[in-house]
Amino acid sequence: MKNFRYMDGAAILRLNRETCVGCGMCVTVCPHRIFGLRDKKAEILDYNACMECGACARNCPVAAIYVNPDDGCGCAAYIINSWIAKVRGSSVPVCGC
């Protein structure tokens, strides 16, 4: 993955080290290896590599991690449809992916 970097500062990912119990599940599940453990607490080592898959947040037993909760595959067609849906006030967009 070293050859692939996406836009810096775009991903929505927050870790609350106060709440963290240091179980290390986020370290285990992250497919981009962005977490580490320091002083028995999780820390974000490479924030800009986050793709918002949400695996860390889902597996955090104390809800210390927040990730952009919007799901959807992230293709342009999906996002255009989600914008249209927002304007129209209609329900969940689809893209056919």
Partner: peptide, 9 residues
Amino acid sequence: GSTPYTSLS
């Protein structure tokens, strides 16, 4: 939408 590294944001 097909890559494993782009965030939705």
